[in-house]
């Protein structure tokens, strides 16, 4: 299925590739490079934990960063992620890992003040655009468009938006440095 090919022939490092770039305006306390990365066709997986410290896991459909916002919005399907959304509502704990499959570059953002909100009017279109971009990205490593669309299938009528302010940012590209903190 996947052929292991890498888009630029070289595994990118973090934070050199998408790390902080001085002078750019920051949204949600993140550099433009990181925001751009989040809006590419990356894999978006999320977690939370409930009051009993049981972890919850899910797959997100898109990331939204308002131009003037202090927060990041993460778009999820409610039907597929009921337990996760309940845990977020309960504890406010939230983590998002964004990974570019063709390069393995990966970052994790986490916060403690997450809230679950209704998806806004743009969410469905945002999710649709992200699925297109993710499909193009996965095509680079041999996955079919049908596979990606089945993986990301959701009901636009049942979307939720988790909003959080990232307080921690980690490099998660596989290797011994995975898990080290990166300046936002």
């Amino acid at each position: 299925m996947a052929n292991g090919g890498q888009r630029d022939g070289q595994r990118g490092g973090w934070p050199e590739r998408v790390g902080p770039e001085g002078g750019r305006p920051a949204r949600a306390g993140l550099s433009e490079a990181i925001l751009t990365f989040l809006e590419r066709g990356v894999s978006l997986v999320v977690s939370s934990s409930d009051r009993a410290n049981r972890p919850r896991v899910g797959r997100a459909l898109a990331v939204k960063v308002p131009a003037d916002g202090a927060w990041i919005g993460v778009c999820l399907d409610r039907t597929a992620n009921a337990a996760l959304l309940a845990a977020v509502a309960e504890t406010g704990r939230f983590a998002l890992a964004a990974t570019e499959p063709s390069t393995h570059i990966s970052i994790q953002l986490a916060g403690e003040d997450a809230i679950v909100t209704a998806a806004d009017a743009e969410a469905a279109a945002l999710a649709a655009r992200h699925v297109d971009a993710f499909s193009a990205e996965l095509a680079l490593i041999g996955y079919s468009d049908a596979f990606t669309r089945a993986l990301m299938a959701h009901d636009p009528a049942t979307l939720a938006m988790v909003r959080f302010r990232p307080s921690r940012l980690y490099d998660q590209t596989p290797g011994p440095k995975a898990g080290t903190a990166v300046p936002p």
């Binding site: 997986v45 972890p55 896991v57 939230f94 998002l96």
Partner: peptide, 22 residues
């Protein structure tokens, strides 16, 4: 091992962590 899985764990204080798993 054809498609990576996702793993979520949390620290004793509840701080969640999520990453891909080969």
């Amino acid at each position: 091992g054809a498609v990576p899985a996702t793993i979520a764990t949390c620290a004793p204080d509840g701080t969640p962590n999520v990453s891909l798993l080969s």
